[in-house]
């Protein structure tokens, strides 16, 4: 059934209101205080991400979008998000072949299919751990967990000692060569506080990524987590990541 006029007006009206709200919020983002935006209450959200390994095709668009959106340096090769291609031979599961050429930025060259080898892509990013070792070790508290569950870095305050980079079990951090401070995925904090998606979620052609709000009872993430077998990376580290993987092979580290 085509949408009726009433429905159309309602949707358009919502869109206009949201755009206006987003532009107000943008002023606060530019001022470096997105949490003070009048239409965004940081205490009312608890962000998480779902990555569906079975849906990722390794096209690299998330890596490209992330670099473009966040100004991540092209060279040397640092990444806020990257994609790994895993090939696991069931006869030799201890020695998987893993690669991430240029972080998967340009996608992956096809490899001759090997009989009986399991191949899949694993997009990675900061896990936004609830008990984050990087936050724990920062000597001045420049890296911190925001009230809405995002691990952020105060670049005006970071010493550049790199202790947090050593403490991250996932290789999510690097030293930004331009600011000489630690850097990593912010879950596009400047976007999500405006009601937008992260850049990587926005561009993913297969919807392999989903940004969810665990404090919003209406968010589909609750149903997803209830009905899928999800896994986090390196659970033995007890960092309590908020990046959940669906269909993740147990050998992925």
């Amino acid at each position: 059934m085509p949408p009726d006029r009433r429905e159309f007006l309602l949707q358009t009206g919502k869109l206009l209101v949201l755009t206006a709200a987003a532009s107000t919020a943008w002023d606060y983002v530019v001022a470096g205080e997105p949490e003070k935006a009048p239409d965004y209450d940081a205490t009312k959200h608890w962000w998480a991400m779902i990555i569906d390994v079975e849906k990722c095709i390794g096209c690299g668009r998330c890596v490209q979008a992330c670099k473009a959106e966040n100004g991540v340096s092209m060279e040397p090769y640092y990444f806020r998000t990257w994609i790994e291609r895993w090939e696991i031979d069931p006869d030799d599961p201890e020695h998987p072949h893993v690669e991430s050429p240029n972080g998967g930025y340009d996608g992956f060259a096809t490899r001759p299919e090997k009989q009986g080898v399991k191949t899949f892509f694993v997009p990675k990013l900061c896990n936004q751990c609830a008990d984050s070792p990087c936050v724990q070790v920062c000597p001045v508290g420049a890296t911190f967990l925001s009230p809405d569950g995002v691990v952020l870095i105060d670049k005006e305050y970071c010493l550049g000692c790199r202790y947090c980079i050593q403490a991250c079990p996932y290789g999510s951090r690097y030293l930004d060569p331009t600011t000489h401070t630690a850097d990593k995925c912010t879950l596009c904090y400047h976007r999500i506080t405006k009601g937008l998606q992260t850049a990587c979620v926005e561009v993913c052609p297969t919807q392999a990524r989903y940004l969810g709000d665990l404090k919003n009872p209406k968010d589909a993430i609750h149903e997803y987590l209830r009905t899928h077998v999800v896994h986090v990376l390196k659970p033995q580290m007890a960092t309590h990541p908020k990046t959940f993987y669906n269909g993740l092979d147990g050998s992925v580290r």
Binding site: F79, E84, I165
Partner: peptide
């Protein structure tokens, strides 16, 4: 072998 991309340095 394989390093996480950010680990090479």
């Amino acid at each position: 072998g394989f390093m996480y991309p950010n680990e090479m340095e």
